[in-house]
Amino acid sequence: MIDFLTTYLGYEFVRNALIAGTLAAILGAIVGYFVVVRNVAFAAHALSHIGFTGAAAAALLGLNPLQGILFFTVGAGVCMGVSGDKLHRSDMAIGMVLSMALGLGVLFLSLYHGFAGQTSAILFGDIFGVSEGQVVEMSVLSLLSLGALALFSRRLLFASLQPRLAEARGLSLMSLSIAFMVVLAVSVSLASQVVGILLVFTLVIAPAGIAARICRTFWSGLGTSILLGVVVVWAGILLACLTNQPPSFWITALFFVLYLVVEGWCRLRTRQA
């Protein structure tokens, strides 16, 4: 086992995968906690898929995919943020914009005559293909997002839990919502490097959703969410090394099993109570 680990950790692509995975897991876990308490999972889901359009546009224009993804997701995040605390009720509008974006993405892909394998990398992620330059890029963006959250997370939590009250104390629900959606857009873009656009949802929703289901305070929820995210991403990457199956599969499978266990345990306890 130790031999196995040292062999794989000797490879640069595995080390880069672990660093990128850790960054995406931490950011996803923290931002995801707010996605859960704000009840905006569908908006997060839509943002990641709008990233697909960005990646396809970037491929077409010969840009770095992360830049394309960021451009589209941040733009969409700002637009969604404008609806303030009513975002979770805008399923119809989000759905319409999402389908339009996916349609555009398909158009961009059909116009782009490059190597088709790149499409699969965009959609399903290619964590073993993360370069050192991308790791640096991801670190800077993660630090910026976490720094922003550190600045306004107190207001954000207040406004998420008690929007009417926050409004009455003079907080602008709309600016908080926009600021949060921008941070969410950045973390969705980062996570798509790891698990791909189709599975971004996993890193943003799964650890935070599971943690919020069992933890009774904000900080224990956040800590559990980060721990779950990091441990599962690492386990997924190592299992991928062992089995030669894609890491995205292992990461999503592990989260799904965890979710089933926690959900079952919660239901059992409610029945007893």
Binding site: N39, A150, S153, Q162, P163, G209, R213, C266
Partner: peptide, 30 residues
């Protein structure tokens, strides 16, 4: 307020919720 909060899917305690509201308009972390 009249409106209920959307905490139905979380285990967040009543105490944690009130703590988040207390001085919730300040900058920084909660």
């Amino acid at each position: 307020p009249q409106e209920r909060t959307g905490l139905d899917l979380t285990a967040l305690s009543a105490r944690a919720m009130i703590a988040a509201v207390c001085q919730g308009e300040r900058w920084g972390v909660p």
